[in-house]
Amino acid sequence: MSMNELEREIATLIVEELRLDIAIDSIDPAALLYSEGLGLDSIDVLEIALVISQRYGVQLRSDDVQNKHIFSSLGALANHVAQARTR
């Protein structure tokens, strides 16, 4: 599956922020972000949340009932940002 523009932008942010040693194009937007898939841990999730908040003005909160879905994949995260972004 190929990425849309926002997915690519967020993938780039994540790879840069977390200093991941992977090519942006090799990321599957449907793959899991946490544990398996990209193999991110909870501190990585926090760093992503901080950079997403800075870049798009979207606050990711611990008590959001959608969290499981939002962090399930790059595609889901991008969808959430697209709906909630203020900049």
Partner: peptide
């Protein structure tokens, strides 16, 4: 520990001015 939103909870607690304590000596899988 061990959930995706764990560190978001920590961030929110600190933002409220609270103390968050942790044991920083053990290395866990991964």
């Amino acid at each position: 520990l061990g959930r995706p939103q764990t560190m978001l909870l920590v961030a929110e607690a600190l933002a409220r001015g609270e103390i968050v304590a942790l044991l920083a000596d053990r290395v866990v899988t991964g």
